[in-house]
Design a protein around this nucleic acid. Structure first.
Lengths: 335, 335
DNA sequence: TTGAAAGCGCTAACAG
DNA sequence: CTGTTAGCGCTTTCAA
């Protein structure tokens, strides 16, 4: 492992000069810079992140906290964020809660994140007041995806409007018995998104003069399996819905499966619409509300980089990305 | 940010004692340890990773290199690895190649990884001889998932056998015109897995006395979209296959879609089988060859941790995890 | 334009 | 059982 000293000795300059040369700072002659760079390549020199981190107090690392890496949505946001971070030479430290509340507490409760990263990106989590306090005390920029907190940058879609547009589509088709499959549970995650989508659903119904039926609100845990279970429950109802709005495509796909199991035709007997435009939605011909997922990651990364002074771009503090109704084959008029 | 000095002063001991106490080293009285720990909690002390990294030469971080985070398979392996790393107090640095060959070269070519992490996990990539040399020169443990290199720990399935079992199933059903959808392209990734699966496919055919037809080998890029395109091509053939073995479930799902588009019934007109037992496979009733994906991540993590001296477990150097034929509704006898 | 030197916060001998 | 001390490999004044 060649160190800056080796390199300095090799070139015959001081370590200070090497440091300046390699980081493109002024006050180094073009000629020396060239010699330093050449030698660095020749010796395969790579600066120690620990050493420069210790000296500068910055690690050139961003911590990304995600509820579940295995979910397409979060993986895609991570992908987007990674790309722009990498461009600026930042590394990405991944913290996967995997649905474990203890992990969440450990992570936010201790100053861990703050010590290890220059900035923190929190995905799909609405930090509690206490967590906000703890994160704030760390003094590092924090960016949010899918939630927002005063004074912090955030990226999200208008969940309320997205839900409304889906439900309004179903209403326009003539449906009145419309169910909602979402995540209302007390899982460690996703507390704000499902709530907003449910509110949008309820509001659209009320505006259309349709009385919401509590039996039509079912837990789907944001997974296909959860959607399947939810779909079964709904189809077992004495007077079941003619249409289902699922707060995510994965749940919608589960509902589709339940319909098939029950021998109901889609959209003849049951219309189904989701949210996301998940990779698989196309393959199920699923109607959905599309959102640009990797763009959310990219934007969030840009926001914190801006706060770190890494870019001159003006990145708005609170970004709300548009959604788009995508009609495919799973929605149609009721029988 | 309270430092070890602050803490030492607070408790009235030396920094050395604080360091020992907090790391659970011997040669500290239980009483002092308690006082140190209490004070640490009270002051919210968290050691600086940069400082201890610099002092020890170890960062308590593992770098994980993945071709595509957004693919379910890799996200799931990362999830598995993350869990066991976290247990031992290791952080995970994520490097997503996202299919960019330049990124791959930058990553392996410079000593970056080696400097930043105590160990490296490479997923779904068969390192070139040059890359092996470079990684080896870093002197850090390297673990592989989905490939293997002499002297390095690895976890994989027997791709050859997995493919054979799928194809033998199709043969047993009476199919003779069996196509292969895989990844044969020169993408930066997956060079070994698709090849092994294709070989298994060919061998199974030959053993059964079936002459392989080159027109039946189609590129699917390991994506649903690629599988769709592949399926279309196969179904357009004058004398198309009666069965398709896709090297991944995602491609198999694409083929299913192509069949539906073309009005072919599955498995009546076309049988389809994949590999993975992807989350979505159940929902498509897809026959497949199941592999335990997160277990691959867990095992790989354990292997490098063992090499780092973090565990007493005996972890075999080369692990081959079993696969299992899962028969659902997309395979049946030819018409 | 360059160099000397003092840290950054922690660990690891070595003494005591 | 505890403290002193010398680094780890960089960055950053301050001088030259």
């Amino acid at each position: 492992m060649t160190s800056i000293d080796d390199l300095a000795r090799e070139v015959g300059v001081s370590t200070a000069t090497v440091s300046r040369a390699l980081r493109g700072l002024p006050r180094v002659s073009e000629q020396t810079r060239q010699r330093v760079v050449d030698a660095a390549v020749r010796l395969g020199y790579v600066p120690s992140a620990s050493a420069s981190g210790l000296a500068t107090g910055r690690t050139r690392t961003v911590a990304v906290v995600v509820p579940f890496v295995t979910r397409w949505f979060f993986a895609t946001v991570v992908h987007g964020a990674e790309q722009v971070l990498r461009e600026r030479g930042y590394d990405l430290l991944l913290y996967n809660l995997a649905g474990d509340p203890a992990a969440r507490q450990r992570l936010f409760g201790t100053g861990l994140l703050t010590k290890r990263a220059d900035a923190i990106l929190v995905l799909g989590l609405a930090p509690t007041a206490e967590e906000v306090r703890q994160l704030r005390s760390g003094g590092r920029p924090v960016g949010l995806v899918g939630a927002s907190v005063d004074g912090w940058p955030s990226v999200q879609i208008d969940d309320h409007a997205a839900a409304r547009s889906a439900v309004e589509h179903l209403l326009a088709l003539g449906h009145r018995r419309i169910a909602y499959v979402g995540g209302l549970d007390d899982s460690p995650v996703d507390v704000v998104v499902p709530t907003a989508r449910r509110d949008g659903y309820l509001e659209a119904l009320l505006d259309a003069g349709v009385e919401p039926d509590p039996a039509y609100e079912v837990e789907g845990r944001f997974t296909m399996a959860g959607g399947l279970a939810a779909g079964r429950r709904l189809l077992d109802l004495p007077e079941g819905p003619t249409a289902v709005f699922a707060a995510s495509d994965e749940m919608a796909i589960g509902v589709l499966r339940a319909a098939r199991e029950a021998g109901r035709s889609v959209p003849g007997d049951l219309s189904v619409i989701g949210v996301d435009d998940h990779e698989t939605a196309l393959f199920f011909d699923l109607s959905t509300v599309r959102q640009r997922v990797d763009e959310q990651g990219r934007t969030a990364a840009r926001q914190v980089l801006a706060l770190l002074g890494e870019t001159d771009e003006l990145v708005p503090e609170r970004v709300v990305l548009p959604t788009e109704l995508v009609l495919r084959a799973t929605t149609g008029p009721p029988a």
